[in-house]
Amino acid sequence: MADREDDDPLQAFVRGRLPDAEAERLGSDLAWDPHLAAEHRLVEALNHVDPAPHPFPGAFGWARLSRAIDEERPAQERPKALWRRQVPVWQAAACILVVVLALPMGSQWITNTPDSARFVPATGPTTAQPGASETPVQQASATVRIVFAPTATAQAISDALQATDATIVDGPSAIGFFTLAFATDDALAAALPQFADMPAVIELIDPQ
């Protein structure tokens, strides 16, 4: 390729792009020049070492992006979604009450969830709670489904989860729901009013 003319010949050698004659010459130079040999080893290593310390956000990132895209679409193109409806305050309060009453059912569901269904937050330490078990799903007794605001930053989401000792255990669903687990029913009950005060981070609390 013409735009490869200026490139590092060692990179072309490592990737098998160097013409045979040049590759042969470079190969013989590597045998007697230790500095060139060290540089060659470095280039080889740089081709294989993934420099990223943090994992790709994956499904979590797509859920955020998907919601942000929907926000930008003209209103008539957006999918009809539950949280787009105007929900009176009494209905919202009823939803929260149903969540609290449904906690035993939720805990039964969560303990029956197979390992393969667990959602591991892609931002790694963002949901690692101080003192939390490595298998929060098995210990969680209370869950709630929520939708993050499309404009919420990763930092804001992380802060919200840490502030309420919540852990993401499932999601996102096709319409953007995440399931959060709490160590105790009391922890969930304490978190709900906090979530209600975070409209910029958590857009909807779903009764399931």
Binding site: P53, T153, A154, S158
Partner: peptide, 11 residues
């Protein structure tokens, strides 16, 4: 280097 900054920049 911050994971949240990186995730937001990707978004």
């Amino acid at each position: 280097r911050d994971p949240h900054e990186a995730a937001d920049a990707l978004q």
